[in-house]
Amino acid sequence: KRPMNAFIVWSRDQRRKMALENPRMRNSEISKQLGYQWKMLTEAEKWPFFQEAQKLQAMHREKYPNYK
């Protein structure tokens, strides 16, 4: 399994919040909304999620050194 990228790190919590706030919203619509919201974030707002993704990638490399 691949390490999470910055968008996935960010969207994990956002998806839960959105699903709780909009229980009738379909998963496909939630995904569209999340994509739009991510695009609207500034680079500074995205930065912590890129840092977290880099940490996860480093841990993944250490744990699975022969992963493609």
Rank of each mutant, 00 (worst) to 15 (best):
K1G: 13
K1E: 11
K1S: 07
R2C: 12
R2Y: 08
R2L: 11
R2E: 08
P3G: 09
P3Q: 10
P3A: 10
P3T: 13
P3I: 09
P3E: 15
M4I: 12
M4F: 02
M4Y: 04
N5I: 07
N5G: 10
A6Y: 06
A6P: 07
F7T: 00
F7N: 02
F7W: 01
F7A: 02
F7H: 02
F7D: 00
I8F: 11
I8C: 12
I8S: 14
I8G: 14
I8E: 15
I8R: 03
I8V: 12
V9D: 08
V9Y: 05
V9I: 15
V9M: 10
W10I: 02
W10C: 01
W10F: 10
W10G: 02
S11L: 02
S11T: 03
S11C: 11
S11I: 09
S11G: 02
D13H: 04
D13C: 01
Q14W: 15
Q14A: 15
Q14N: 00
Q14H: 11
Q14E: 13
Q14P: 06
Q14L: 07
R15M: 03
R15V: 02
R15G: 09
R15E: 11
K17R: 07
K17W: 01
K17Q: 12
K17M: 06
M18G: 02
M18E: 00
M18L: 14
M18V: 07
M18T: 08
A19E: 13
A19P: 03
A19G: 03
A19W: 00
A19Q: 13
L20N: 15
L20T: 12
L20S: 10
L20P: 06
E21G: 02
E21C: 10
E21A: 09
E21T: 04
E21Q: 03
E21P: 00
N22R: 02
N22E: 14
N22M: 10
N22P: 01
N22I: 03
N22K: 01
N22Y: 09
P23M: 03
P23G: 07
P23F: 05
P23D: 02
P23L: 03
P23E: 03
P23C: 07
R24S: 13
R24A: 10
R24Q: 13
R24T: 15
M25V: 05
M25Y: 06
R26C: 05
R26P: 14
R26A: 15
R26K: 12
R26E: 13
R26G: 14
R26Y: 09
N27A: 13
S28K: 02
S28N: 07
S28L: 03
E29D: 15
E29T: 00
I30Q: 00
I30V: 08
I30E: 02
I30S: 05
S31W: 13
S31T: 13
S31G: 05
S31Q: 12
S31V: 11
S31C: 15
K32M: 02
K32R: 12
K32S: 07
K32Q: 07
K32A: 12
K32N: 04
K32T: 05
K32L: 04
K32E: 13
L34A: 01
L34Q: 00
L34E: 00
L34D: 05
L34C: 01
L34H: 00
L34G: 05
L34S: 02
G35S: 14
G35M: 09
G35Y: 08
G35Q: 14
G35H: 13
G35E: 15
G35D: 14
G35L: 12
Y36K: 14
Y36E: 15
Y36M: 04
Y36V: 14
Q37P: 01
Q37A: 07
Q37E: 12
W38N: 15
W38K: 05
W38T: 00
K39H: 05
M40H: 10
L41E: 04
L41G: 05
L41I: 00
T42R: 05
T42S: 12
T42E: 06
T42C: 02
T42A: 02
E43S: 07
A44V: 06
A44D: 10
A44W: 02
A44H: 00
A44M: 03
A44P: 02
E45Y: 10
E45R: 01
E45L: 03
E45I: 08
E45A: 02
E45V: 01
K46H: 01
K46L: 01
K46Y: 09
K46P: 04
K46D: 00
W47V: 11
W47Y: 12
W47C: 06
W47T: 12
P48S: 03
P48G: 05
P48D: 07
P48K: 07
F49Q: 01
F49S: 03
F50P: 03
F50V: 15
F50E: 15
F50C: 05
F50T: 13
F50M: 12
Q51P: 02
Q51A: 06
Q51N: 09
Q51W: 01
Q51E: 12
E52A: 08
E52D: 03
E52F: 06
E52I: 07
A53C: 04
A53T: 13
A53D: 02
Q54A: 12
Q54Y: 09
Q54S: 05
Q54H: 06
Q54I: 05
K55I: 07
K55A: 10
K55G: 07
K55R: 13
L56S: 05
L56R: 06
L56I: 05
Q57C: 10
Q57D: 15
Q57T: 12
A58H: 15
A58M: 10
A58C: 12
A58F: 06
M59Y: 09
M59R: 10
M59A: 11
M59K: 11
M59F: 04
M59Q: 13
H60Q: 15
H60C: 08
H60E: 14
H60R: 11
H60K: 13
R61T: 12
R61I: 05
R61S: 12
R61F: 14
R61C: 03
R61Y: 13
E62D: 10
E62V: 08
E62K: 07
E62P: 10
E62G: 10
K63H: 13
K63Y: 09
Y64D: 15
Y64Q: 14
Y64P: 13
Y64N: 14
Y64S: 14
P65K: 11
P65Y: 13
P65M: 14
P65A: 15
P65R: 08
N66E: 15
N66D: 15
N66P: 12
N66M: 14
Y67P: 10
Y67G: 14
K68R: 04
K68N: 09
K68A: 09
